[in-house]
Design a protein around this nucleic acid. Structure first.
Lengths: 211, 211
DNA sequence: CTTACTTTTAACCAGTTGGTTAAACTATAT
DNA sequence: ATATAGTTTAACCAACTGGTTAAAAGTAAG
C-alpha cells in the first residue's frame, strides 16, 4: 500500500478547499441559497465547476458548511462578553460594541441569516441545537441583575430581543433606511451607523436603568 | 368596429387578474422572487401557467406589481397616524399598535421586504421615490416635539429607526428567536409577540420621556 | 520509469424554468 | 348565424442549472 505525503496533499487540499469556502461565503451571502449559482462560485474561486462537486458533493452540503461556519465564528464572541464577570453596564457596553463590530465587518450577515432561517427553519433549528448555544444562561444573568435592582424589572426575553433588534435592524434594513432617511446617500448612512454605537447605548440605558 | 361588453369583460378580467394577484402574493411572500415558481403561482391560482404570462408578460413584471401593491397598502396607514393632531404619547401608542397589527396580519412581510431590498436595491429605491412617501415630514414632527421638550432630545433618525426596529425585528427574526428563547414553541412565541404590544411601548417611553 | 493514487478539467446529461405559440373556447354585436 | 374580439389551454422550446463521467494532469513512493 502506498503512503500519502500528508504534507503535500493537505497543503493542496487546504488551499483549494479554502478557496472554495471563501468564494462560496462571498456568493452565498450576497445571493442566498436560491440566488447563488454553482458556476458563479466556481468562477469566484477560479476553478472548474466540477471541482466544487468533488469537494462538496452537492450545493446543499456546500451551503451547510458555509452556514455552520458563519454561525460558529459569530456567536461565541458575543456570548463570552455577556457571561464575563463585570458590572452590567460595562457588560452591555461591550456586548453592543462587539455586536456592532461583527455587523460592520459582515454587512450582509443579517439579511442573509433572516433570509435563510425563513427558507429552511428546521435545518436552522438543528444547527443551533447542535452548536451548544444556550441563551438560558444569559436570560438567567439578566434576571439576577433585575433581582439585585441594578436594572428595571422586565421580561428578560424582551430585553435581549430589544438589544439585538436595535443593533441588527439598521444593518439588515440598510437599503431601505438609507433611502428613506438619507435619500440613498451611502456615506451619510455609514456615519449614521457608526454614531449609533453610542446613541443605541444611550437609548437602551435610558430605558432600563432607574434614575 | 365591435364594441366590448365592458361589464362581462371586466368581471372576467378582474376575477382572473385578482386570482393571479392573490396567488402571486402568497407564493412570492413565502418564497421570494428567486424561490417562487411561475408554475406554483399558476397552481395556487387554479389556472394555466400561460395565463400568467398573458396577464403579466414576465415574472419580473408580476413581481413588481405585487411588490408595489404591498407597499401601497402598507405604508399610508402608518403615515396617517403619525401626522394626525394628537399628543405625542398617544400618537406613538397608535403608531406602534398599527405597525404591530400590520405585521400580525402579514407575518411574512418583514423577511420578504428585507430579502428583496437586498436583491435589487435600485428597483426598490424607484418604488419608494415613485410612491410619494416622504419621511422628512415625520422627522420634522419629531424634531418639533423635541424642541417643545416633550421628548428627550436625540437624532430623530435614530428614534424612528429604533421604533421600527423594535416593532419589526421580532417578526422578521421569528424562526431564530422562537427557537433560541422558547425552544421552538410557536404558541409561546405568539403570546410573547402579543405581550410586546405593551412592553415595547414601555421600553420606548422609558427611553424617550424625561422623568 | 512505473505504479498507485489524488486533483483537475472538459464535455456531457437530465430535469427544471421562464416564456412562446397556435389552436380552442367564450361572449357580444351585427 | 357569423364575424370579431378577448380569454384560456395544451404543447412546445431554448436556456439554464445542478450534477456526472471519463479522461488528463499532477504527485509521491518503489
Amino acid at each position: 500500500m502506498v503512503k500519502l505525503s500528508d504534507k503535500m496533499n493537505n497543503i493542496k487540499k487546504d488551499n483549494t478547499e479554502q478557496k472554495i469556502m471563501d468564494a462560496a461565503h462571498t456568493v452565498f451571502l450576497k445571493k442566498g441559497m436560491d440566488g447563488a449559482r454553482m458556476q458563479e462560485i466556481a468562477n469566484e474561486a477560479g476553478i472548474n465547476k466540477a471541482l466544487l462537486h468533488y469537494y462538496f458533493r452537492t450545493k446543499q452540503k456546500l451551503f451547510e458548511a458555509i452556514f455552520k461556519q458563519i454561525f460558529k465564528d459569530s456567536f461565541p464572541i458575543i456570548r463570552k462578553t455577556l457571561l464575563s464577570d463585570i458590572p452590567i453596564r460595562e457588560k452591555m457596553d461591550l456586548f453592543i460594541d462587539s455586536y456592532i463590530n461583527l455587523l460592520s465587518k459582515n454587512p450582509f450577515l443579517p439579511a442573509f441569516l433572516l433570509k435563510e432561517i425563513h427558507r429552511d427553519p428546521e435545518f436552522f433549528a438543528n444547527v443551533i441545537k447542535g452548536s451548544g448555544i444556550n441563551p438560558s444562561e444569559i436570560l438567567a444573568m439578566l434576571e439576577k441583575e433585575m433581582g439585585k435592582g441594578n436594572i428595571r424589572k422586565m421580561n428578560p426575553c424582551d430585553l435581549i430581543t430589544n438589544i439585538i433588534a436595535l443593533s441588527v435592524f439598521p444593518f439588515a434594513a440598510k437599503p431601505l433606511l438609507s433611502i428613506m432617511l438619507f435619500n440613498g446617500d451611502q456615506k451619510a448612512y455609514k456615519i449614521f451607523l457608526q454614531e449609533r454605537r453610542e446613541t443605541v447605548k444611550e437609548f437602551i440605558f435610558n430605558a432600563i436603568f432607574l434614575k
